[in-house]
Write a protein that binds this DNA or RNA. Structure first.
Length: 156
DNA sequence: GCCAACGTTGGC
DNA sequence: GCCAACGTTGGC
């Protein structure tokens, strides 16, 4: 059964345009350093799942594209890279702690902004809108997914 | 830059 | 296992 996810990226790190410019519009989703988010990738995601590409920590946070999960979870190489801000010396190559999936952008959309999402009566329970939410990956209810695609004028 | 909320660490 | 201290996230 196809599932749906919201994945946050700081556009100063990897924007939807950066992803579109990559080969096959696909980027490895590096840098997840939270166990719950990792477990969503490892245990929850399947190739083909729907992804809302969300820009966070920027002037206009919001959903800026529709993407898909393009690989199974595999070892995030940045955890072993001393040059990387995501390097984790506690993670050993024989037992990698952090994983990633490849994410392929399917459509760039307009920015469905955070204030718009908040104002939408049909999206009140969207996890990313919950107070104190900090998870960089959250599951999205099918009903919420459909509403958001409708708002963006994207047909499925 | 501020600060609320949350996750992690480490002493006990 | 508890919990205070600390670091990080992320909107504003």
């Amino acid at each position: 059964m196809k599932k749906f996810w919201l994945m946050k990226s700081e556009p100063s790190e990897v924007s939807v345009d950066d992803a579109l410019a990559a080969p096959k519009s696909t980027v490895p989703w590096t840098g997840v350093r939270n166990y719950q988010a990792r477990n969503f990738m490892r245990d929850g995601m399947q190739v083909g799942d729907g992804v809302l590409f969300y820009h966070s920590s920027c002037a206009e946070p919001g959903v800026v594209g529709i993407a898909r999960v393009a690989s199974a979870a595999y070892t995030d190489p940045t955890q072993f890279d001393p040059q990387s801000p995501y390097c984790d010396l506690a993670s050993k190559p024989e037992a990698p702690r952090w994983l990633l999936v490849d994410v392929q952008v399917v459509h760039k959309t307009r920015n469905l902004t955070l204030p718009e999402l908040r104002a939408d009566a049909d999206l009140q329970d969207l996890l990313v809108l919950k107070k104190g939410n900090r998870l960089s990956i959250t599951p999205v209810e099918p009903a919420h997914w459909h509403v958001i695609l409708l708002r963006l004028g994207v047909s499925e």
